[in-house]
């Protein structure tokens, strides 16, 4: 972790899919975040900050994709461009792009696709081939397909209702498309990750999510059992190599 606390200005905050918002934040001297890290956002009227993964970052600018799932994210969605937001940045370990030699497989489910955007950019800028399998419930919920295609990735979309792409789940799309890769990255809801776990080889990593208290390793609220013992998702993750997960 290289935590920092900074006030960002909201440049834009608008819906991009049902219940999903894209928020672009600006802070003059903010460094670029490593892909796969998250921020803790202070929300007016709430005691705890909310952890949100960084979808894309460049020097001075952060893009968050978040889903409204409760009062905190609803309050965040109501915030107007121009207002300030108190952020803890630099949280978590992030993805290990160097673990991939030549070609990567990215698997995202729903809002879990968010951090794969910057991962895709970073892998591409390292000259690696990227195949992405993105799963959603229905066509209107599809996120980041064009953005990742624009980066030169091959994107396969699966929808549970068959309204776009492959009908079914990411596991179905994986079986159907048989992508070529030497390393993979997974981020999505827990049932999706647990379904992928037995069908994927050891050479990959999973980005986990849990309800957090602090996001900075202080409260032990987001613990997960690993093969090396209990680990804090916020402090020791959120990304864990497959062989760390005793599923």
């Amino acid at each position: 972790m290289t935590m920092d606390r900074k006030i960002y200005t909201i440049e834009s905050n608008a819906p991009v899919a049902p219940q999903v918002y894209r928020m672009v934040l600006h802070a003059e001297d903010a460094p670029e975040e490593r892909c796969g890290r998250f921020v803790e956002v202070e929300i007016p009227g709430k005691f705890l900050r909310r952890p949100i993964s960084v979808s894309m970052s460049e020097p001075g600018r952060l893009t968050l994709l978040y889903k409204v799932v409760g009062g905190g994210t609803a309050a965040l969605a109501a915030m107007e461009p121009g207002s300030g937001l108190d952020l803890l940045t630099g949280l978590g370990n992030g993805f290990d792009t160097l673990a991939c030699r030549k070609s990567a497989l990215l698997i995202g489910g729903g809002i879990g696709a968010a951090p794969l955007h910057q991962l895709c950019r970073d892998l591409r800028s390292e000259g690696k081939r990227v195949t992405a399998i993105l799963g959603f419930n229905t066509a209107s919920e599809i996120l980041l397909r064009e953005e990742m295609e624009a980066l030169g990735a091959t994107v396969h979309v699966a929808t549970a209702d068959g309204s776009c792409g492959i009908r079914g789940l990411v596991t179905d799309a994986l079986r159907e498309t048989r992508p070529d890769y030497d390393y993979y990255y997974v981020c999505g809801p827990m049932p999706m990750m647990k379904a992928l776990y037995p069908v994927l080889p050891d050479c990959g990593e999973f980005s986990l999510e849990e309800r957090m208290g602090c996001g900075t390793g202080l409260c032990f609220g987001c613990t997960v059992q690993t093969t090396a013992g209990p680990r804090r998702i916020c402090h020791d993750g959120p990304v864990f190599k497959k062989n760390m997960l005793p599923w």
């Binding site: 005691f47 705890l48 009062g71 032990f220 609220g221």
Partner: peptide
């Protein structure tokens, strides 16, 4: 087991 944390008005619940 998790969840161990719940937001409340003026604070939080923990069951670490």
């Amino acid at each position: 087991p998790t969840p161990r944390i719940a937001e409340c008005t003026g604070g939080l619940l923990n069951a670490v």
